[in-house]
Amino acid sequence: MRWGDQAPASSPAQAGDPVTTGLASAPYNHRRRLLDAPLSRGITACVLVALLSSLARAEIPLAERRSGYEQMSPATKAMQDDDTSNPATLSVLDGEALWRRKAGDANKACADCHGDAAASMRGVAARYPAFSSAQGRAIDIEQRINLCRTEQQKATPLAHESRDLLALTAYIGRQSRGMPIDVAADEKTKPFIESGRRLYAMRQGQLNLSCQNCHDDNWGQKLAGVPLVQGHPNGYPLYRLEWQSLGSLQRRLRNCLIGMRAEPYPYGADEYVDLELFLMWRARGMTVETPAVRP
């Protein structure tokens, strides 16, 4: 089943809905308001048709998807292509050392259960975020690492954007480099992909923009002099020249939210995981470049 082919149920008429987690009352329904106005039925029909056709144009056709790599300058591409010039390699090496270091009250290293990461972690990052029965929802790699830390190693969880968590996610991600993104899209993950899709299409912030406005409708054009990428998560965690350090996808999403002058969700929020799952599904089949370099 292709999610993008669904009927108007996921049309942009709902794109303006605020996120209504935890509210007891029914969410504000824009469509019902429009249709109830007796004199504007004809106008409403025209508006809906226009919105639906713009939805059809908005999603990038699978064959036209491009990694952000392709829009970089030759110098930046060269930086990513050579492991010696890619500063993210230092994080991967740190991650390799952490993988073998014993930690926590259980005095266990990742390697004690998972052995050689090159074998056991191969392809893992390409299929995350994944559904966890224990958690009852989709979780990302950082959450998976921290679950191992707390439940298996009996150690304290690693903080988001901490040097150690970034190093481990870079190391694990590196084992999927060159492989196609392959997140599951089944009954278990569908609700979270849909939640991510809604967040992706939702206008928010002082500038009232959605991810879709830039990354689906205007990719390839320039925003503040910088080329807009399609926004695929195929290289994370990555070394961003603007940050001069390695950072996670959540850090990048927060940058976007702040750029739109919206309140960023706190690190570790479900919204980021849902968004990441949707973005990974949207990038299905594209090649993992972790750890990438981006301007």
């Binding site: 492991d83 010696t84 010039s85 390699t89 230092l90 090496l93 740190d94 050392a97």
Partner: peptide
């Protein structure tokens, strides 16, 4: 103890 330098010779 972290990786400090990358050298390609």
């Amino acid at each position: 103890m972290s990786a400090r330098a990358l050298i390609n010779v």
